[in-house]
């Protein structure tokens, strides 16, 4: 652990320079040349390799997060507030508990 830490201190400036390109890197929109540079750096820098892996994982986790449904009660009140009550039709509401926010 401490050796990894020391290595990180040693490369800190380099790591910092790559930091702002990592977003484009994980999305695959970074120029090929810069990609190769970052990959070469990751081969010798565990910290940057971990940051890239976990950054990509973070994005994936949020993309896969189940989306909350619009409850019919909320939909119905919305139509009422908008003076559109006659147009209200219940939507397909899943049986599952809506995922809680808090």
């Amino acid at each position: 652990m401490s050796t990894v830490h020391l290595q990180h201190e040693h490369n800190r400036e380099t790591c910092r320079q790559y930091l702002e390109s990592l977003g484009d890197y994980v999305e695959g929109t970074l120029a090929a040349e810069l990609c190769r540079e970052i990959e070469a750096h990751m081969a010798v820098c565990d910290n940057c390799r971990i940051v890239v892996n976990t950054l990509a994982k973070t994005i994936t986790l949020y993309r896969q997060m189940p989306s909350p449904e619009l409850p019919n009660a909320v939909r119905e009140r919305l139509f009422a507030v908008l003076d559109l009550a006659p147009y209200y039709r219940p939507g397909p509401e899943s049986e599952d508990e809506p995922d809680s926010v808090t």
Partner: peptide, 21 residues
Amino acid sequence: DDGDLLPRQFFDFCCLPEEDF
């Protein structure tokens, strides 16, 4: 300042078992 953006936590959670997530 990028200071507060610099990664500090290097626990590699990317490959934990799926049920953890």
